[in-house]
Design a protein around this nucleic acid. Structure first.
Lengths: 120, 120
DNA sequence: GGAAGTAGGTATCTCAAAGTAACCACACGC
DNA sequence: GCGTGTGGTTACTTTGAGATACCTACTTCC
């Protein structure tokens, strides 16, 4: 992202949320609860495995999500929101309210109507 | 920014806020009120004139700030938050609260202490 | 007369983030 | 033994956002 970022705590948080899919991932984890890597990947259509991995690593480093490994074969990895993640989720919800008031869902977005309608 | 963005109103709003300096600009306009281009540039140290122009254009297109030109010589251009901008500002404030709890201002950021302290 | 401030526009360059693709070990089913 | 799914990692390529530098036209200050 930006080459030079102002040393502002706010900016650090925004850099975290900034990448494509990031809030989408948080929204999925918030509504679906703990989710496995593969399911997450299927829930975020279009994302590459590599980028999903990167996003999850960053979110984990910031303590927004928790990674849990079950040592089965094959090992299963699940991700869930932490308390921080839920706190963030609340703010993102209000941001989402604003977004939906400002950019009303277009008729062209029929395919996504189900998704939009399911957003609390 | 992202090459492929999910067609989500939320993402549109985040794309708006995403770029470096963007929220900083909004914070300045929120606390200082209507501000002229030059003053804004001085208030956001490190930003280039070009990028400031781009940011202001985008924010204006989204109806978050208003651009007002006084036809003096030289013409003076001022920017201020619109009602949308103030609404956004409120949410950004709560996001900022979270940011400052999660990433406590480091002692290394002494230069910015004045700024941080002045954030409401 | 020359510098500086006003609010940008234009052109070019570069580098880091995103995309793409291949690969891994392991187990299961056929 | 061959394909499928699991949860990634590694390497290579691309592209587009940001940086940089220079331009306008006008006025005021020194």
């Amino acid at each position: 992202m930006p080459r030079s970022t102002p040393p502002c705590p706010m900016q650090a948080l925004l850099d975290l949320l900034t990448g494509p899919w990031t809030t989408y991932i948080l929204w999925v984890l918030g509504t679906a609860g703990e989710t496995r890597f593969g399911a997450l990947r299927r829930a975020v259509p279009g994302i590459s495995a590599r980028l999903l991995t990167v996003r999850l690593r960053v979110l984990e480093q910031h303590g927004v999500i928790a990674r849990r490994v079950e040592s089965t074969t094959p090992p299963q990895v699940s991700y869930a929101l932490t308390r921080r993640g839920e706190e963030l989720s609340g703010i993102l919800d209000s941001l989402n309210d604003v977004a939906r008031r400002w950019y009303p869902p277009t008729p062209a977005a029929n395919q996504r109507a189900a998704h939009d309608a399911s957003v609390p």
